[in-house]
Structures are given as structure tokens and as C-alpha cells.
């Protein structure tokens, strides 16, 4: 492991991406339109009349839908506007390790407060 497994020549497939530095302006506008659309969908979703009868299952579905749309928006902004999709994967790892750690740790905290049962 010490010397054998790590070689000096290791420019990976990521390398090609680094030259295509993101999208052109039109592409960004398109993405922004999608983001706006999802935002509209989120607001509309939260006003759907289905959620009126607040049973456990429907409120779960409402929250789950919102969280999924939120995650998509997040990933799109991070991936395209912040270039993570086009940059070295190291940056993605740096950022998402912080994000995942935060989510895991704080979900555990809220669990110990029995937050989810309410």
C-alpha cells in the first residue's frame, strides 16, 4: 500500500471536462427557467387541496414532495451555476462532505429531541 498503490501519473477522466468550462449563456438561461418552474411547482404543491385532511400519510407526502423539489433545485444550482459538474471532482467532495455531514448530524440531533414524531 505504501508505495505501490499510488502512482504519479493519475490524470483521470475528469480531465477532459475541465476544458469545457460550463454551458453557454443560453444554457444558463434555460436552467434558470427550469429553476423558476420548480419554484412555482413547490408553491403550488404546498397549496394543493389534497393536504387539507392532515393525516399522517398525506402530510408525509406533502413534505417529501417539497424536499425532493428543494434537493433538485439545490443540486442544479450547485452543479451548473457553481460549475461542480464541470470542475475537478475534488471540489464536489469537499463541499458535499460538509453538506452530508451537516444533514446527518443535525438529523440525529432532531431525532433525539423526538422532532419527527410531532
Amino acid at each position: 500500500m505504501t508505495d505501490a498503490t499510488t502512482t504519479d501519473v493519475a490524470i483521470t477522466g475528469d480531465h477532459d471536462h475541465e476544458h469545457s468550462h460550463g454551458l453557454d449563456d443560453k444554457g444558463y438561461v434555460k436552467i434558470a427557467l427550469w429553476l423558476a418552474l420548480i419554484t412555482g411547482a413547490e408553491v403550488a404543491w404546498s397549496y394543493l387541496p389534497v393536504w387539507e385532511d392532515a393525516s399522517g400519510l398525506t402530510s408525509f407526502a406533502e413534505v417529501a414532495g417539497l424536499l425532493v423539489m428543494m434537493a433538485i433545485k439545490f443540486a442544479v444550482v450547485a452543479g451548473f451555476f457553481m460549475h461542480l459538474r464541470f470542475d475537478n471532482k475534488l471540489l464536489t467532495r469537499l463541499f458535499y462532505s460538509g453538506l452530508v455531514l451537516a444533514v446527518v448530524v443535525y438529523v440525529i440531533v432532531l431525532t433525539t429531541f423526538e422532532f419527527w414524531s410531532s
Binding site: T6, V9, D14, L90
Partner: peptide
């Protein structure tokens, strides 16, 4: 990680 961060990519 060790691989992608070895020696000067562009």
C-alpha cells in the same frame, strides 16, 4: 483522491 490529486492536471 490520491489519484486525482497526483501531479499537475491542467
Amino acid at each position: 483522491l490520491a489519484d486525482t490529486t497526483a501531479v499537475g492536471a491542467h
